[in-house]
Amino acid sequence: MDDKAVLHHYLRSRRADLLAKLDGLSEYDVRRPLTPTGTNLLGLVKHVASVELDYLGEVFGRPADRSLPWFDDDAEPDADLWAAADETREEIIELHRFSAAHSDATIQALPLNAVGEVPWWPQERRRVTLHQILVHMCVETAQHLGHADILRELIDGSAGQRPGDPNLSVRSADEWSGHRARIEAAARQAEETARQAAEAAQRA
């Protein structure tokens, strides 16, 4: 594969992995906030789909015929990061697929050195290439997939990209509990060692 095909492959894979984090969950679980700042699974999918439409559409003069009201000037802050009660899971999944298809068409149509402009970036950084934006979207999607990995594990204990993920150690529930306990014990021991060292330094 050439460089564009490699980047496109990684972007497609991370998109699919992110969308799969919704599988098998209730309406509540895909929407509920699990961090103090409100991070939630369906909101992550909505956000990634929305920004990709801009970065691989508008930036290269290929705007999509799609209204994203959560990006309007009068929209509530962070409205792209959560789903209102009247926004359905199906609508957001369809947006994700629409965004992916529109982005794929841009990637296929343009060479890596194609030039675009990001109007919401500072003036000195606005001129970009497709190569740069492909890297940007791979990183952005992977970052939010990492968030989604943690949220899904908090919801139902699912971990890894898929059942049998070779990157995840195979342990029973009891073995995972023991593993976690060892990490907790190590953290507490390190904290106690640091406390003792600080007290010794004060006495010296």
Rank of each mutant, 00 (worst) to 15 (best):
residue 179 H to S: 12
residue 98 F to Q: 15
residue 165 D to P: 09
residue 101 A to W: 02
residue 13 S to F: 11
residue 63 P to K: 11
residue 202 Q to Y: 13
residue 46 K to F: 05
residue 44 L to G: 01
residue 3 D to T: 14
residue 169 S to K: 13
residue 166 P to Y: 05
residue 74 D to R: 04
residue 154 L to Q: 15
residue 92 I to F: 01
residue 78 D to T: 03
residue 137 M to V: 03
residue 62 R to D: 01
residue 58 E to C: 12
residue 191 E to P: 00
residue 77 P to S: 06
residue 51 V to F: 09
residue 92 I to R: 07
residue 58 E to T: 15
residue 110 L to G: 06
residue 182 R to S: 14
residue 81 L to D: 11
residue 38 G to A: 10
residue 114 A to G: 03
residue 168 L to Y: 11
residue 169 S to I: 14
residue 13 S to W: 09
residue 111 P to A: 05
residue 19 L to P: 02
residue 78 D to L: 14
residue 10 Y to M: 03
residue 44 L to Q: 05
residue 203 R to D: 11
residue 88 T to R: 08
residue 106 T to S: 04
residue 89 R to A: 10
residue 98 F to M: 15
residue 46 K to A: 01
residue 103 S to L: 00
residue 172 S to I: 05
residue 196 Q to T: 09
residue 15 R to S: 03
residue 160 G to P: 02
residue 74 D to N: 10
residue 75 A to Q: 08
residue 3 D to Q: 15
residue 161 Q to C: 06
residue 151 L to Y: 09
residue 138 C to M: 11
residue 73 D to G: 11
residue 152 R to S: 04
residue 130 L to W: 03
residue 140 E to D: 09
residue 169 S to E: 15
residue 36 P to K: 05
residue 198 A to W: 13
residue 158 S to H: 12
residue 7 L to A: 10
residue 2 D to K: 06
residue 185 A to Y: 01
residue 55 Y to A: 00
residue 72 D to L: 05
residue 75 A to G: 05
residue 129 T to R: 02
residue 67 S to E: 14
residue 30 V to W: 10
residue 30 V to T: 10
residue 30 V to I: 13
residue 115 V to H: 03
residue 54 D to A: 14
residue 168 L to D: 02
residue 1 M to A: 08
residue 79 A to M: 02
residue 145 L to G: 01
residue 140 E to F: 00
residue 204 A to I: 09
residue 128 V to T: 13
residue 36 P to V: 10
residue 83 A to V: 08
residue 64 A to F: 07
residue 138 C to S: 12
residue 97 R to I: 06
residue 93 I to N: 07
residue 58 E to Y: 14
residue 191 E to H: 12
residue 146 G to M: 06
residue 69 P to I: 06
residue 155 I to A: 08
residue 116 G to K: 10
residue 9 H to W: 12
residue 109 A to K: 06
residue 32 R to Q: 11
residue 48 V to K: 00
residue 63 P to W: 07
residue 63 P to D: 04
residue 72 D to S: 10
residue 132 Q to N: 07
residue 74 D to H: 11
residue 104 D to M: 08
residue 168 L to I: 15
residue 81 L to K: 15
residue 101 A to V: 01
residue 198 A to K: 13
residue 179 H to L: 12
residue 24 G to S: 02
residue 122 P to K: 07
residue 195 R to Q: 12
residue 106 T to A: 04
residue 64 A to H: 12
residue 159 A to L: 13
residue 73 D to M: 04
residue 62 R to E: 00
residue 150 I to Y: 05
residue 24 G to F: 04
residue 179 H to A: 14
residue 36 P to W: 03
residue 122 P to L: 07
residue 113 N to F: 03
residue 57 G to P: 03
residue 188 R to C: 07
residue 155 I to Y: 07
residue 65 D to E: 14
residue 88 T to Y: 08
residue 188 R to G: 12
residue 131 H to A: 13
residue 90 E to K: 09
residue 40 N to E: 09
residue 190 A to T: 11
residue 103 S to Q: 01
residue 47 H to A: 09
residue 198 A to R: 15
residue 106 T to E: 01
